[in-house]
Amino acid sequence: MSIPEITQKLLAAKKDKGLSFTDLEKILGRDEVWIAAAIYRQASASEEEAKQLVEALGLDESYVKELTEYPVKGLGPVVPTDPLIYRFYEIMQVYGMPMKAVIHEKFGDGIMSAIDFTLDIEKEEDPKGDRVKVIMSGKFLPYKKW
């Protein structure tokens, strides 16, 4: 997976400033995962959000325009090779159909929106090793008959 040049520059500025995504969440008033998605060009920012981000990172306003453009989303048609990202791919291979079956049983025939959607990542401390808690919440959209 290639990382866009703007993403590389934004991440370098974030590192140089010693900022975390949590720090940026406090500055922009948007969730840290959404901010990361905007930086990785998987979400588009409003002009105000882009200006706040660019200012927080100490960059010039030339980045604002690109951050507000509609991105091309997704990893592409290949199996991800990054181990962390691959684990999510593997989770969907193993649990995708069971998740689909349970969702259909509880909600009916439809999908979970990835547009009306939130994603939170939490750290759960555990004496056996810290755990990653991923919380996805998407609006249920039933298929319509016509």
Rank of each mutant, 00 (worst) to 15 (best):
K26L: 14
L28D: 00
R30Q: 07
D31C: 05
D31I: 03
D31G: 14
E32T: 09
E32R: 15
A36H: 07
A36Y: 06
A37M: 15
A38E: 01
A38I: 04
I39C: 05
Y40N: 14
R41Q: 07
A43Q: 11
A45G: 02
A45S: 05
S46G: 08
S46A: 07
E49D: 15
E49Q: 15
A50D: 10
A50E: 10
K51G: 04
Q52S: 14
Q52I: 08
L57W: 05
L59D: 07
E61R: 14
S62F: 06
S62Y: 06
Y63M: 04
Y63Q: 03
Y63F: 14
V64N: 07
E66R: 01
E69V: 11
E69C: 13
P71Q: 03
K73E: 15
L75M: 08
G76I: 00
V78L: 13
V78M: 10
V79I: 14
V79G: 03
V79T: 12
V79Y: 03
P80V: 09
L84S: 13
I85H: 12
F88E: 08
F88G: 13
I91S: 08
I91Y: 11
I91W: 11
I91Q: 08
I91G: 06
Q93T: 11
V94R: 15
Y95Q: 11
Y95L: 14
G96S: 12
P98D: 00
P98L: 00
A101V: 13
A101K: 14
A101Q: 15
V102A: 12
I103R: 04
I103T: 02
K106Y: 09
K106S: 12
K106V: 10
F107R: 12
G108T: 01
G108A: 01
M112C: 04
M112K: 02
L119M: 14
D120P: 00
D120I: 01
D120S: 07
I121L: 13
E122N: 06
K123R: 08
K123P: 00
E124S: 02
E124V: 08
E125Q: 10
E125I: 07
D126I: 01
D126L: 01
K128D: 12
G129K: 04
G129L: 03
G129V: 05
D130L: 13
D130E: 15
V132D: 04
K133A: 04
K133T: 05
K133N: 04
V134M: 02
I135Q: 00
I135R: 02
I135K: 02
M136C: 10
S137P: 01
S137C: 11
F140Y: 05
L141S: 08
L141N: 09
